[in-house]
């Protein structure tokens, strides 16, 4: 088990390093001069060739990409001082670059944005897991009845509405028209847990209910299958009450495929839920990345990509570990 985790961590690290190389290479081989966005930001879109050239030279964009990647990678480990335009900024380890706009180390910004996204992701995923699986199990137990049909139809209808529409309408009705959830937004849990909760409850609900629809259909199917298994008949024949048969025997088996989807969805949430953060005014990774893309704030863009890759690698590892706990037949080697 331990050896397996170490092995997976190493292979995950390799994936992340490869992605960082790819992202870094985009600076060099992208369609535009990488110094231009910064120059545009600094001069309010009046970047002259002379300034641009000076920027390019100072920031090493005229150097070889391999050498510069080496410097960048070293900076991640031990920190460095980094040229930004004509000035030089200190960038302590782990240095992921300097924000073109705020001139702050990107890592420092990440540490303020990530908790917001993490809070949103944890609450929302918990909500859609519980809600989706709960409704799915209910539908599976009542298979073929009107309850099942209306639950499945309802979830299908809800999931066919684009998320941004659901979120916008919810924000409009609940926050603006009805004045409920007035403190919607992100407030650090370390400052005031109650406010943290109050600020996130609406986004959790909206993300949770909308996201639960796919879990409803998925866990319903999985549950119908496991309820038809021979070992469920055995459990009934033992004289176990229906509650135990369904929630102990059938659900346990039905959860295995659900966990797979959950891992991927959780990684997506961690990489930033752009719409939810944008609509509910949460300063998280998604909104940060989106804003960075619009002004071509390259260090921030590359950082959000790295965060996403780490999230995917980590949640895949987590899913495999959960598998081995859920199903004793899975051996991790």
């Amino acid at each position: 088990m331990f050896a397996y985790i170490v092995k997976r961590l190493i292979s995950g690290a390799v994936v992340v390093v490869l992605i960082s190389m790819g992202v870094f290479a985009l600076f060099w081989f992208g369609p535009r001069n990488p110094a231009l966005p910064l120059c545009n930001i600094d001069t309010s879109n009046r970047c002259r060739p002379a300034i641009l050239q000076a920027y390019e030279h100072n920031m090493g964009f005229d150097d070889s990409v391999v050498h510069q990647y080496g410097l960048w990678a070293k900076g991640v480990v031990v920190g460095r001082s980094m040229a930004l335009g004509t000035e030089s900024h200190k960038c302590p380890a782990p240095c992921l670059g300097i924000d073109y706009r705020t001139k702050l180390p990107v890592w420092k910004e990440l540490t303020t944005k990530f908790p917001a996204t993490l809070s949103l992701a944890l609450g929302a995923s918990l909500m859609y897991l519980v809600l989706g699986v709960g409704v799915g199990v209910l539908a599976a137990r009542r298979r073929g009845t009107w309850i099942d049909k209306s639950l499945v139809t309802g979830s299908l209808l809800l999931s066919s509405i684009p998320f941004y529409l659901v979120a916008l309408l919810a924000s409009l009705w609940f926050t603006i028209s009805l004045g409920l959830f007035p403190s919607t937004g992100y407030h650090p849990i370390t400052h005031n847990p109650a406010k943290w909760f109050a600020g996130l409850i609406l986004p959790w609900l909206v993300l949770g209910i909308w996201g639960s629809t796919s879990y409803t259909r998925f866990s319903r199917g999985s549950m119908v299958e496991s309820l038809g298994e021979d070992y469920i008949r055995t459990a009934k024949a033992k004289g176990l009450p229906a509650r135990k048969v369904v929630f102990k025997h059938a659900l346990r088996a039905a959860m295995v495929p659900v966990v797979t989807i959950f891992g991927l969805d959780f990684a997506t949430l961690l990489a930033g839920t752009i719409f939810a953060e944008r609509i509910f005014g949460i300063e998280g990774i998604g909104k940060w990345g989106l804003d960075a893309v619009t002004v071509k704030n390259l260090p921030v863009v590359s950082t959000t990509v790295l965060v996403a890759s780490v999230a995917v690698v980590a949640s895949n590892l987590l899913v495999d570990l959960i598998y081995s706990v859920l199903d004793p037949r899975v051996r991790l080697t």
Partner: peptide
């Protein structure tokens, strides 16, 4: 009354 089923691999819960 108790029952023994045909295929013990599928009749026992694998988990």
């Amino acid at each position: 009354a108790a029952m023994i089923f045909q295929d013990p691999l599928s009749a026992l819960h694998p988990f």
